[in-house]
């Protein structure tokens, strides 16, 4: 799978979760993320359970805050009637009070919607490799993608080096607990990492890193600054609630930013070895996500859109082997 496909899919899930409080739709979306995290897990991915705990935590926080300081509007059946109390040091805040089923459900579903967003992003991160994603960024972002790729590649060996430095402290008879020990353990690791950065830079330089066949276009920077200006205008439109400003300005920002990126990348001559292909299954996953995203923003029916997003999981079905040639 192309690493970007599931991210587009997750964007659809996030957008959809932000536009609905229907338990059925949210339930479907939770199921979809669990399926992706379970079946699409790449080797070496960080555990998905972290995202599950975080999602659950968000729901719990919402419910606890509702019970503690929620606005207890009388709506239907009261489940528990807790004594309410207005602390003198916080005017306008009423602690506890009657807890209604409807209020509890609203709090839980609100939390669930956020949890779905967290799970969707987590599932995408579990399914697609960050280093492969960094390999397929557009050329203008080459420097940063390289820095991030180096960090992703080197971090595990630094974790190992941290362990070695910690064990080495014992050899010298030093304690390995406490803040001072922690800070001093980091020192040799940092020192080695800095030396390594210089070695690595030399190794990249002699292998032709950032070798250009021409210079950057001088129009790139002005275009980028113009993109930032446009995004400032767009944000102003969003905050004042004037779509007449916001939409065209943000569109202009995207356009100018893209143009600036293309100009900046001009003259850089690089190719990609065995790029990840974008084929049918990528179209399926990303397409479903895109429909979910656009549909949610346009206010489409959530149930239908959720069904579309679920259908995107079809990309997980293993590709059939080529049919045997029968005699």
């Amino acid at each position: 799978m192309h690493p970007a496909a599931w991210w587009v899919w997750a964007a659809g899930v996030v957008a959809l979760a932000g536009r609905t409080t229907s338990p059925a739709v949210l339930g479907l979306l939770v199921a979809a993320t669990l399926v992706l995290a379970g079946l699409g897990r790449r080797p070496g991915a960080p555990p998905f359970s972290g995202y599950l705990v975080l999602g659950l935590g968000i729901v719990v926080v919402r419910v606890v805050f509702y019970v503690l300081v929620g606005l207890k509007v009388p709506d239907g059946q009261v489940l528990v009637d807790l004594p309410s109390w207005q602390p003198p040091w916080a005017p306008g805040v009423e602690l506890l009070g009657p807890v209604t089923a409807a209020g509890l459900a609203r709090a839980a579903l609100g939390g669930l919607a956020l949890a779905v967003m967290v799970l969707a992003v987590g599932a995408a991160a579990t399914a697609s490799s960050p280093s492969r994603l960094l390999r397929s960024v557009p050329p203008a972002l080459h420097h940063l993608a390289t820095a991030a790729a180096i960090a992703v590649a080197v971090a595990p060996s630094l974790v190992r080096a941290t362990g070695a430095a910690r064990r080495a402290r014992r050899l010298r008879g030093l304690p390995d607990r406490g803040p001072r020990a922690l800070a001093e353990t980091a020192l040799p690791v940092l020192a080695d990492a800095l030396d390594r950065a210089v070695d690595l830079a030399a190794s990249m330089d002699v292998r032709g890193y950032a070798r250009r066949s021409g210079r950057a276009d001088p129009r790139a920077l002005p275009a980028l600054v113009a993109a930032l200006l446009a995004s400032a205008v767009g944000l102003y439109g969003l905050l004042t609630g004037d779509p007449a400003y916001a939409v065209p300005a943000l569109a202009a920002a995207v356009g100018l930013g893209t143009a600036g990126g293309l100009l900046a990348a001009r003259g850089a001559r690089r190719t990609r070895y065995r790029p990840d292909p974008w084929r049918g299954r990528e179209w399926l996953a990303a397409g479903a996500g895109a429909i979910g995203l656009v549909g949610a923003v346009a206010g489409g029916p959530p149930v239908v859109l959720a069904a579309v997003v679920l259908a995107g999981l079809g990309a997980l079905v293993p590709a059939p082997l080529p049919a045997e040639v029968s005699a």
Binding site: I150, A151, V152, V154, V159, A161, A193, L194, A201
Partner: peptide, 13 residues
Amino acid sequence: VALLGLLAAVGAA
């Protein structure tokens, strides 16, 4: 670029 990558890795580690 290399320094950025290594220092970011230190932070992550």
